[in-house]
Amino acid sequence: MKFARGEGEIITYALGSCIGITLYDPFLKLGGLLHVMLPMRTDPNDQKVYKYADTGLREMIRKLSAFGMVKSRTIVKIAGGAKMFEIRGNSDFGNIGQRNAAMVKKVLMEERLRISAEDTGGSSARTMSINVATGDVIIRSAGKPEKHL
């Protein structure tokens, strides 16, 4: 998880089944980008909180709130959760992206944060960036034009 205030760009590359989440408070020009890989932390002693959607998002919200982020004006955007490989006869395989997306949405709802834009699912990896000065979120994906979320 990285965050910045005032100016700068934060970027995370090649989100596959992982999910990128940006939180942006336009009043403070405070923006953060979190990259989670799995839906849930199962081992409470695991220190890598940002690896998991549940613990990662909560820690991110806690941290940004400490820097003054106000939930009611925060703009939330999410991207990723692709399924790149389809194995015939094993539909469970590779649906981790879908499970990640579901968990991210659940935690956001519990935290009373509304998603204002998303680009999830599909079969292509995505690169996600946020410009902290403007709050502009850009998604880059193979063979597609850049997309502003």
């Binding site: 590359y13 090649a14 989100l15 596959g16 890989m37 490989f85 990896a125």
Partner: peptide, 12 residues
């Protein structure tokens, strides 16, 4: 796909 994305499959 992007190499980075593909390698997250086994990692995940």
């Amino acid at each position: 796909n992007m190499l980075g994305g593909i390698l997250t499959v086994p990692i995940a």
